[in-house]
Amino acid sequence: MIETIQSFFRGLAQTHPKWNFIFFYEPSQWARIVSGLSVTIELSVACIALSLVIGILGAWAQGSPSPFLRWLTQGYIQLFRNTPPMIQLLFFYFALGQFTPTITGPDGWTEEPVMSNIGWAMVSLSFFAGAFNVEIFRAGIEAIPQTTKEACEALGMNRLQTYAYVVLPLALRVSLPALNNNLVNLVKTTTQAIAIAVPELLYQMVSIWNDYASAQNAAMTVLFVTYILLVGALAFAMNRWERTLHIPGFGGGR
């Protein structure tokens, strides 16, 4: 089976020299794709999780009685929403990276930073997407009518109970469509980590076509298809989630 595929693409590269899918018959190049894809997935999953945490904490801080906390959150949101994510990546890696301590590497004599470029990409991209998540969750919470919270109060619930049992479950449902968009955007934005040499999928593909110019068209095709599948999978999962949470008669009908 694998042999057939390999010989098919080897043959294709000979008859059509501009379509050299080298990674489909050279195991060493295939390994680069696999490793790039796994970094991309790792980066996406970590950033989604971290940006959700930032979103929840930020929405909470925005509603806090402390003006300092509110001001801080607002400043964070403005900074990260209104600057390009690529610049944020460069800033985190090159500007903040130089202040992080180093540790002695496994070989016993090189010094390595405690935070790798992948680590910085995770932090930077999470902060980027997190800024949008704060606003998305905030909007969800604000969409819950004051009167609904009053009904909770009249039933003897305290603030925590009101949030846990009523406001947050409803706010989540309001937030999901916007959250869906933002997370899809986040997965696409992970490609910008190439700027700080994170060996994710785009980085690996560019490396391949730098090494084998004939593989450029093939590599681009694979990139498009892979991202369509990745984003498709995420959107599918989010839509499923939206549907399981859907309540008859609440929000947009489906």
């Binding site: 009518p145 009167t147 609904t148 009053e150 009904a151 009249a154 049992y165 009523v166 479950p169 409803l170 449902r173 309540i247 008669g249 609440f250």
Partner: peptide, 10 residues
């Protein structure tokens, strides 16, 4: 009891 019912829709 309120004018707008204020039930928990979920």
């Amino acid at each position: 009891v309120f004018q707008q019912y204020n039930l928990f829709p979920h």
